[in-house]
Amino acid sequence: MAALLRYPGKVVIVTRGTSDIGVATVREFVRQGANVVFCAKASNESQVSMHKEKMMFRVEELKTALNGNEWIGAQGAFPIFCSSPSRGKRKVCSSDNCSVLSLAAEKGQAIQRDLQSCGWAGDAFFQVCDVCRESDIQRLIQVTLQRYGCLDCVVNLAEHAHVEPLEDVTAQEFSNNVDRNVVSCFLVCKYALPYLRETKGNIVNLGRLAAVIGIKDALPSVTSKGAVIAMTKALAIDESKCGVRVNSISPGHITSLWEKEALRFRNPEAVLQEVETYQPMGRMGTPDEVALAILFLAADATFCTGLNLLITGGAELGFGIKSQMGPDCSALSVGNLVYPPSNE
């Protein structure tokens, strides 16, 4: 049985493991015999301040949303119902603070139970971790070592997207993007590398096609993801003497992301149809296809390091509309947004 598995007995950490790509990656590694510790934030407090002023409804609308039930917040605080329609999350704020009713931890534990009941050769364990906090990252590494005894691979999937015209991007939003995409990746690598050197393991970081070719109105994301790709190459050089491989993947247009993002535009169906035409293959990719590419880099690509593997269906090939001088007729133009950028 073990001879048929591609990563038997290996120990893997997957950050942002409850995302669509994260779940697909964890599942594929477990199916191939790996023991996986995957993580996610317990809650999403950082998003509250970004949406608080943009997505507020009056208390009358809160009552309607709650089926007309009379309700007030703790200690009689005036309640405001906040929701990001594109993400389907519900937030309840008081006049003094705002907390998120997050199900991230419950979702992670449910994924763990499902994978452990599949009968596959590997194992899965969920750990709450905010990858922007050094103490959380150190705890994540130690939990992994205590549970499985070593570390063979780290898959950094944490990311923070921001699509908005430059004039509307604040310095704090730009800094948050860099922290979530670049600093978190650096910190996970830093604390994992002492143990990866012992096993001559490997790292797979998450870039994005946008960081390779550039896209409009996404300066923070393009900049920070470009930094991740550059970091991957620098780490590959530094760690080659220790036998540690460092690679990255850059997904293009993936179904699960665009099915959510399209809801932010006036004509979601037109958006999806347009995005499908971006690939010579005539379709978008799936989280499972991204997961298979990550597994390839971890398990099979033993002579690859410093590689940025494009998972794009060829979207970067050929010619397209390049001029920024005329009117933007794309269904994806910022002018066609119904809801503010999600910044997630």
Rank of each mutant, 00 (worst) to 15 (best):
V59P: 04
F57C: 04
M325Q: 09
A218D: 04
Q146M: 10
N181Y: 04
E259K: 13
L332F: 09
I203W: 04
V23W: 03
V11I: 13
Q116H: 04
M55E: 09
R87D: 15
V178L: 12
E239D: 05
G320Q: 12
S250I: 00
M281S: 07
N67C: 05
S46I: 01
A236D: 03
Y191A: 03
V128H: 04
C242Y: 11
L309Q: 08
D114K: 14
K225P: 00
C150I: 05
L140T: 03
T277Q: 15
G119C: 09
S102C: 13
L206V: 00
V131L: 12
V212C: 06
L101R: 11
M1Y: 14
P165W: 04
L206D: 00
A331H: 15
W71D: 01
P280W: 02
T305P: 05
G76I: 08
F265I: 12
V183H: 06
T312G: 13
K322M: 15
D238G: 05
H253W: 10
P327Y: 10
K63G: 04
P280V: 01
M56V: 07
F81Q: 06
D217N: 14
T64G: 06
Q279C: 07
K200A: 13
F174H: 07
A192N: 06
K233G: 02
S117Y: 08
V204C: 05
K233E: 13
V204R: 05
K190S: 05
R208S: 15
C118E: 15
V275P: 02
S256V: 12
G226I: 04
G313R: 04
I249L: 13
A121G: 06
P8G: 10
I80F: 10
G122M: 07
F29A: 00
L157R: 12
A158S: 11
G88A: 00
A299G: 09
N177W: 06
D168R: 00
G68T: 14
D168P: 00
K216V: 10
T302R: 13
A40E: 06
